[in-house]
């Protein structure tokens, strides 16, 4: 694997680390199986791309992408909390609605950003090659966001959110308004996914309505790979696991792409993903069995 290909995989892994953290918040912290992300990722990309092409500052575009993603999460939470629609179903409804909404936002299925000012533009031309600049900038953003999320989950409010996911009845008995925490958690999770979409569009030169396909699988794969590696008992470790898991997932894909020699083809990628996640799920059991025998 070449240096550029490796750094490219790391960069895309870091972009998807935001998705992994969002998926972690929904699935693990809130225990809310949320497929909204397949829609909120391209939503973030669409909002940021449209704002950037109309001359608005790219950081503002990222912020708007976060807000748009958050609204998507709120809609799913609303369908679930207000009308009692099963979480999975509520999130699927939001996801398919977002496909149409994303098309409306962009006005067409694909908006190009190749020649636009992005959040990365100021960092190009500092003498460092572009393929270093992108992962570095994204890495710094990931660290900032992971820190903020960890700090949030360590607060009274965040702790109550975690309790909502673990034991809602107990949480309510402790005075936690679980509904509020589900709304806030879902908004936060999808806001992060929206940011990932915005950054993906800016680092890869386009926003396309099809970019959302399989986002949830990628996010879950990253979370599970991270959990297997770190077996985290603290939130900080779990978040680091999300980031590392996401990067490992992308590097594994990159490896599969370059593995013609061992007979793998691009069309085997889905199989690679499934095997990766399955191994990550099976490994802890094997280790557990060894420990007991």
């Amino acid at each position: 694997m070449s240096e550029i290909a490796f750094l490219g995989a790391v960069e895309i892994g870091l972009v998807y680390a935001f998705v992994a953290i969002g998926v972690f918040l929904a699935f693990r912290v809130l225990d809310f199986p949320d497929l909204t992300v397949d829609g909120s990722f391209p939503l973030g990309a669409a909002v940021a791309a449209v704002m950037i092409t109309s001359g608005i500052d790219p950081w503002t575009g990222c912020l708007a992408a976060i807000l748009a993603g958050a609204v998507a999460g709120l809609v799913t939470a609303f369908l679930n909390q207000r009308f009692g629609i099963l979480h999975l179903l509520a999130s699927i409804l939001t996801m398919i609605a977002l496909f149409s909404i994303n098309l409306r936002i962009m006005g067409r299925p694909n908006v190009a950003l190749i020649n636009q000012q992005t959040v990365l533009t100021p960092f190009y031309g500092l003498g460092i090659p572009d393929y270093y600049v992108r992962p570095l900038v994204i890495f710094v953003l990931v660290i900032i966001v992971a820190f903020l999320v960890a700090r949030f989950l360590a607060s009274d409010f965040g702790l109550a959110m975690r309790a909502t996911g673990v034991n809602a009845k107990m949480a309510r008995a402790q005075g936690v308004r679980t509904g509020v925490h589900i709304y806030v958690g879902m908004a936060l999770a999808n806001g992060l996914v929206g940011l990932a979409g915005a950054l993906f569009a800016q680092t890869n030169g386009f926003a396309d309505v099809t970019t959302g396909i399989g986002t949830i699988v990628v996010g879950l794969a990253a979370v599970i790979v991270g959990e297997t590696l770190f077996r985290p008992r603290t939130i900080v470790l779990a978040l680091i696991g999300c980031v590392v898991g996401s990067v490992i997932y992308r590097v594994a894909i990159q490896f599969a792409l370059g593995a013609d020699a061992i007979g793998l083809k691009a069309s085997d990628l889905n199989l690679v993903t499934a095997v990766l996640v399955a191994v990550a799920l099976i490994l802890p059991r094997l280790r557990g069995r060894k420990a007991t025998t």
Partner: peptide, 24 residues
Amino acid sequence: CGTLSIEENLALAAARGTKRMLGL
């Protein structure tokens, strides 16, 4: 909460009746 630590459970209870904000 089984998956939270003892002190996290206690902290949840300690904040009962207060407005839960962003303080640690």
